[in-house]
């Protein structure tokens, strides 16, 4: 029996009276990359926002069903613990604009009660190194985060998410605002990070899913149409709708 890091069962989500996810079942292995693909409005972003309970923070939004991470029921956990266990990176880099590079990464640790400055510094360095940013910023840690390029800011956000040692990293189109070189760096980074973390990435870029994901899930109109090994989804999908989507015939 393969071990499961994230287990989703009969997950439904609503915005007001609009049901946007219609009963999703999905299992994700630890230390793997899962890509969520599908046309705009198919529910893929809502889906990952249900994994870390971000969805329910929208006014009128509602969730039913189950999500377990590392065997723990996410919807029975303290939301603070959920965010610590499940890190998230968004489409546009969103560092805290008034803070330095160092403070952006250290903030989560400070909230978690880490006071020892040496420990703080060591963890910040470790996180920046894991996000492949350390070498570029080590001499300017106290400069404003906004002095970094877009690609660097996105890696800073990844470092910030990693600092609190999550189990899972959610990425919502993390490269759609980046240039090709920065995109490649993030993709390489994802490959390295999966040795430690379980990663779920929403992407509009099909080639990106094909390059970096172990498993790919195709969503359409709030339904999970097909999930399987990425190589299979891109070479021989089971469902005609998946085939039409990945071969660029709609969406």
């Amino acid at each position: 029996m393969l071990s499961i890091e994230i287990k989703v069962e009969a997950l439904h989500a609503w915005y007001g009276n609009d049901e946007v996810l219609h009963g999703i079942d999905l299992a994700i292995e630890p230390r793997s990359v899962t890509a969520i693909i599908g046309p705009s409005g198919c529910g893929k972003s809502t889906f990952i926002r249900c994994l870390n309970r971000l969805h329910e923070t929208n006014p009128g939004a509602r969730v039913a069903g189950h999500v377990w991470v590392g065997g723990e029921d996410v919807y029975r956990m303290d939301p603070i613990d959920v965010r610590r266990t499940i890190g998230m990176v968004f489409q546009r880099p969103n560092p805290f604009p008034t803070m330095s590079i160092f403070d952006n990464v250290a903030l989560g640790l400070k909230f978690a009660g880490v006071k020892d400055r040496r420990r703080l510094r060591a963890r910040v360095e470790e996180s920046l190194a894991m996000a492949a940013l350390w070498d570029e910023v080590k001499d300017r840690l106290h400069q404003p985060a906004m002095s970094l390029s877009g690609g660097q800011q996105q890696r800073l956000c990844i470092a910030r998410a990693l600092a609190v040692e999550p189990r899972v990293l959610l990425m919502d189109e993390p490269t759609s605002a980046l240039d090709p070189i920065s995109t490649m760096r993030i993709e390489e980074l994802v490959q390295n990070l999966k040795q430690t973390y379980t990663i779920v990435i929403v992407t509009h870029n099909m080639q990106q899913a094909a390059r970096i994901a172990d498993q790919t899930a195709f969503f359409l109109d709030g339904h999970l149409i097909e999930v399987g090994p990425t190589s299979k989804v891109f070479t021989k999908p089971d469902d005609k709708r998946t085939e039409d989507y990945v071969s660029g015939r709609f969406g």
Binding site: Q207, E243, V246, S247
Partner: peptide, 9 residues
């Protein structure tokens, strides 16, 4: 064109 699935086959 980066064909996939049946196109690639």
């Amino acid at each position: 064109q980066q064909p996939v699935a049946k196109d690639l086959r």
